[in-house]
Every structure is written in structure tokens, then in C-alpha cells.
Amino acid sequence: MIRGVGARGNPPCKRQKTTHGSFSRIGERPDTQETVTGKRRLRIQHAHHPAGVSATMTSRLGGNLQLASITGGLATIASTVSFAPQAWRVIKTRDTRDLSAGTYAITVCGFSLWLVYGLMLGAWPLLVSNGVCLLLSAFILAMILLSPAAKQAVADSLDPEME
């Protein structure tokens, strides 16, 4: 517990250090905290705000977090679905000559890291969207790296109508 001076010259108050390195007054509401410099700010509760949304961002949005959530959801759907046409094209044509193994290797690494990040945060939207993207991009990478005979066998098992 630390003895400090209150804001605007108020009498000293008892403060305690939080787990985030800032200070909160004993008995104060849990949604506010005082930084080391003494400035007050809103503490974000992860259960009420999507990952990465700060109080500053929320106020800049004019409090319209619902519109931001809808926009984020649509962006997630578009990003996740964007790999499906390429994966389907690889299955249908069995052709990966024009695809870059390096690009897909980096993409797979990126989605793997996003998946780990989502696990660390316990954020299921990150886990689901990046898990789907990881599966699709890893499939495309595997098809790029497979021999023509193995590529044909995989594609035949997924789309047997092709000769």
C-alpha cells in the first residue's frame, strides 16, 4: 500500500498498486484507476470490450461500439472466407504452379501466431477465425509442396468427379 497525494491537491489517500502497474484508491470503483503520473483514466474490462479496443478508441467512435463490432465481424468473415476460393481452385484444377510456397509459408506462420495469441487471451473469435484461415492456408501450402501424384490423390479424395 502506498500513501499518495490526491488529485487537485486533495488530502492524501491510501492507494494500492494493481497488477497492471498502475494505482487504484482503496475502496474505489473497479472501473477506474490512477496511473503512476496521477492522471485518472478508465480501466477497460475485457468482458465488455473486444480485444484491442481502448477507452480512447471507444470515445472516438462516439460510443458507437455496436457499429464497430458489426464492421469487425464483417471484416472477419471476409478475411476468413477469402482463402476458400483458392483452396477450391487447387482441388478442382490440381494446379499450384502460380502459387508462391514462401507466401503461404509466411501466411501459415502468421495464422499460427494469431491462434496462439487467441489461446493466450482466451478469445474464441480469434481462435475460430484464425483456426479456419490456418486450416485453409495450410492445405494450400501442403498442396503446393506435394508431388503431382500425391496432389492428385488428395484432390481425388476431396473431389472424386474430376478425372
Rank of each mutant, 00 (worst) to 15 (best):
R94K: 10
R97T: 09
L99P: 01
M120L: 14
G9F: 07
S54Y: 03
V90W: 00
M162I: 15
I26G: 06
A87M: 08
W114S: 10
G131Q: 02
R29K: 15
K92N: 12
F139G: 12
L158R: 05
C13F: 15
I106R: 13
T37G: 07
M57V: 14
G102W: 05
T18D: 09
M57G: 07
R8M: 14
I77P: 02
G4E: 12
A55D: 13
L42W: 13
E161W: 03
A87F: 12
I70T: 10
M162Y: 11
A155Y: 02
M1N: 06
T32G: 07
T76I: 08
R60V: 10
G27C: 00
L145V: 11
T18H: 05
T32C: 14
I140L: 04
K17F: 06
K14M: 14
H20K: 12
A150F: 07
S100V: 00
G62W: 08
A55V: 08
L65V: 13
R97S: 15
K92V: 09
S54R: 08
I77G: 06
L74Q: 07
V128F: 09
T18F: 05
L119H: 03
A84N: 06
G27F: 02
T32P: 00
P30N: 12
G27Q: 03
G6V: 04
A142M: 12
T58C: 11
L121S: 01
L126F: 09
A123W: 13
E161D: 13
A123F: 09
K14G: 10
L67E: 15
N10E: 15
S82F: 03
E34R: 09
G21I: 01
G6R: 10
S54D: 04
